[in-house]
Amino acid sequence: MSSTAPLVWIGTAAIVAAVLQLRRAWALPRRSAVQNGIGWTLMLAGTALALAGDGAWGVAVASLGGMIVAALLLAHAGWTARPGKGRASARKAHMLPEKGEPRQIGRRLLTFLLSVPLAFAASLLVALGARALAGLAGWNDADGNAMALLLLPLLWGILAFWLLMQTHRRAQWAWLAAPAATGLGLIWIGGAL
């Protein structure tokens, strides 16, 4: 890293300063939008500087600097923490049935099927739909294919989470069907089907 661009070092310093500022801001007795804003602005500015200095490599290096400083601050917080008398949470996660509760294995299995294999299928269709749309827009195949490969896991993760957040089964089906149909339509319009 001997010939690292100066902007990367300045960006790293800004991100480190952002972490320190956020620590100060979040420790205030009352929430301050200005103090929080300074922290986040420094974070954004640091990222932009590192990006301008050495591209994605610069951002990766600068963000590591911020995370290391945060780890040191945490280590200090842990080292100086005093024994407390607070009680830990016992709130239910509703993952397994408690004594006397019905097991609802069928319902749980269906939730798994919706959020894992079916969410994967829907995400794949959306990713391929986006690739078809990119083709229609005149993108190069390299850009379109890489975008599809990036979108597949990203959409799957988001969709799986979102499906588990729904309170009704019908909403889950709708959130699966809408993106899947859209993706399929785009693939068809793109001429791949």
Binding site: L124, A127, L128, R131, L152, P153, A192
Partner: peptide, 23 residues
């Protein structure tokens, strides 16, 4: 970053099969 890059690497072949089938 680890999750997304790991998932891209791991699911790359599945995605490529999808691309191959469609295009």
């Amino acid at each position: 970053a680890m999750a997304l890059t790991g998932a891209m690497i791991g699911l790359g072949v599945v995605g490529a099969y999808g691309l191959a089938a469609a295009f």
